[in-house]
Simulated scan of single mutants.
Amino acid sequence: MTLFSEAKYKFLPLSEGDDIPTQLFLHACSEIVPFFDVLGSTAFMPVKSDINGNIQRLQTQYDTAPDQFPTLQSIVDSEISAGTNKGSKSCTVGLLWLKRYNIT
């Protein structure tokens, strides 16, 4: 058994055109965080903190209106419409960084 084989949530393949459910993506991202604890080095603490911050940013947005943000695309579309998608604190930027950390 490995840390990843014991994960409750995993990144699963999607069919073309499928949107990514927000909650399932955030749960799967959260499963990556304990890996940095296993490494034991304080050098990885900034990465762990960044991942947790981006997860929390998206989770907070989702929690404001779960029916409005069932998918990651719905969050991005909302920020594009509001013109807030390029800000350093946007969910869109946080999502970009989460994807970069979670190579699947």
Results as ranks from 00 to 15, higher is better:
8 K>W: 03
100 R>Y: 03
102 N>M: 08
61 Q>D: 02
69 F>D: 09
44 F>Q: 01
15 S>Y: 02
79 E>I: 08
20 I>L: 06
10 K>F: 06
89 K>Y: 12
20 I>V: 14
97 W>S: 13
74 S>Y: 08
51 I>L: 09
61 Q>A: 08
28 A>N: 05
18 D>N: 06
29 C>K: 06
2 T>Y: 03
90 S>G: 09
104 T>A: 04
1 M>P: 06
85 N>F: 07
83 G>Q: 12
72 L>M: 04
73 Q>N: 12
43 A>P: 00
93 V>G: 08
68 Q>Y: 02
6 E>C: 06
5 S>N: 15
18 D>T: 04
15 S>A: 15
1 M>T: 11
67 D>N: 11
85 N>K: 09
91 C>K: 14
12 L>A: 12
2 T>K: 15
104 T>E: 05
7 A>C: 14
80 I>C: 11
57 R>K: 13
70 P>Y: 08
73 Q>K: 15
78 S>A: 15
12 L>E: 14
44 F>R: 00
95 L>M: 09
48 K>E: 02
82 A>E: 10
51 I>T: 07
72 L>Q: 03
34 P>N: 00
91 C>G: 15
49 S>C: 05
87 G>F: 07
77 D>N: 14
23 Q>K: 13
11 F>P: 00
49 S>T: 14
103 I>A: 08
51 I>E: 04
34 P>K: 02
9 Y>L: 01
84 T>V: 07
16 E>T: 10
48 K>C: 03
57 R>S: 04
61 Q>W: 02
32 I>L: 12
7 A>S: 15
31 E>A: 12
21 P>N: 15
66 P>I: 14
24 L>T: 13
55 I>K: 08
86 K>E: 15
12 L>T: 14
73 Q>G: 12
32 I>R: 04
79 E>N: 10
68 Q>H: 10
62 Y>D: 07
12 L>P: 01
20 I>S: 08
12 L>K: 13
67 D>P: 01
41 S>D: 13
40 G>D: 03
52 N>E: 15
59 Q>N: 10
55 I>M: 09
86 K>N: 14
6 E>G: 15
102 N>Q: 01
30 S>F: 03
24 L>Y: 04
57 R>P: 01
77 D>G: 02
37 D>V: 00
39 L>F: 03
13 P>S: 09
31 E>I: 02
52 N>T: 07
88 S>Y: 07
52 N>A: 05
80 I>N: 09
33 V>M: 03
